[in-house]
Simulated assay, not measured.
Amino acid sequence: MMIDETHRPLRDPAVNAVIDRLAAAQQYPPDDPRARLERDPHDYSEYGYSIAPQQGDLIYLLCRGIRATRVVEFATSVGMSTLYFAAAVRDNGGGTVIGSEIVPAKVATARRNLAEAGLADYADIREGDARATLRDLGGPVDFALIDGWLGVEPSLAREVIEIIAPQLRIGGYVMNDNAEPDFLAYVRDSANGFLSVTLPLHGGTELCVKVA
């Protein structure tokens, strides 16, 4: 089945223009740090590791469907996912995207991209280690994206989901892009209160819902 790339759920031309620019500029270095080796994310500050537009469309649709007003993401990078989240909470009547990004240059870039899209008022990007910046989200959140820096176990994804899960409301979603084995073990353990499924997006996207 062919996907109609012209049919987009997010219909704001200003937001889509920034998304299209970021998608066109996406590139990866020869020594791809996504290979689950220990590397310093600051060494890759010029590369904007981001979700794919198809994942963004799903984020936007799900957030609109559950009337999300408070969402969280790890990591923000240059703000691609933030744009989808911020547009959704705006279109739901208002809200906040809480983002975390450890590389200062990417924080600055993400803020510029949000401002260009007219969404700066809907994002709170916290600079620093997500294990500290996301420890207190100020109340229950509706949706979480975990798409951060890869490394050896315990992965940051596993550490961050353990921090975020108690702050996610029942019926809230978690999306994970990198399929870290210890993250998958956590969300697939029924004792932790999630149901999850692997979607055929961007090489495999885990979508989870908190049910207990």
Rank of each mutant, 00 (worst) to 15 (best):
D121N: 14
L207H: 08
C63K: 01
I98C: 10
I3R: 14
T6G: 13
G93T: 04
R36N: 15
T205M: 15
M175P: 06
P200F: 06
M80L: 15
R169T: 03
A110P: 03
A75P: 00
L201V: 13
A23P: 03
I125V: 13
L22M: 09
M2R: 14
N178R: 09
R188A: 00
A191F: 01
N113K: 02
V78N: 09
F194A: 00
G171C: 10
D12K: 07
M1S: 11
R67N: 15
P9D: 11
P166Q: 07
G94D: 14
F194W: 00
V160L: 15
Y44D: 09
V160P: 01
K210N: 14
L207F: 15
D20I: 10
I146Q: 09
L22I: 06
R11S: 05
V71C: 11
H202F: 12
T198L: 14
S155F: 11
A130W: 02
P9I: 13
G94F: 11
R112C: 04
G128P: 14
N178H: 12
V174N: 10
T198S: 14
P13L: 06
D43L: 12
P53Q: 07
A120K: 12
N192W: 00
P33W: 11
V211Q: 05
D136Q: 01
L62P: 06
R126V: 07
Q167W: 08
L62Q: 12
P33N: 08
V107P: 02
S190R: 00
G93L: 04
A23N: 15
I161L: 05
A132Q: 12
L201Q: 07
G203W: 11
V160A: 04
P53L: 03
L22N: 12
N16I: 08
P33I: 04
Y28T: 02
G95I: 00
Q55K: 01
L22V: 05
G171Q: 11
T96L: 13
P181T: 09
A17C: 10
V152T: 12
T76H: 02
Y173D: 03
E73V: 06
I146C: 02
D136F: 06
S155I: 01
D32L: 07
I3G: 10
K106A: 02
S81R: 03
I146H: 00
S100P: 07
F183M: 04
V141S: 15
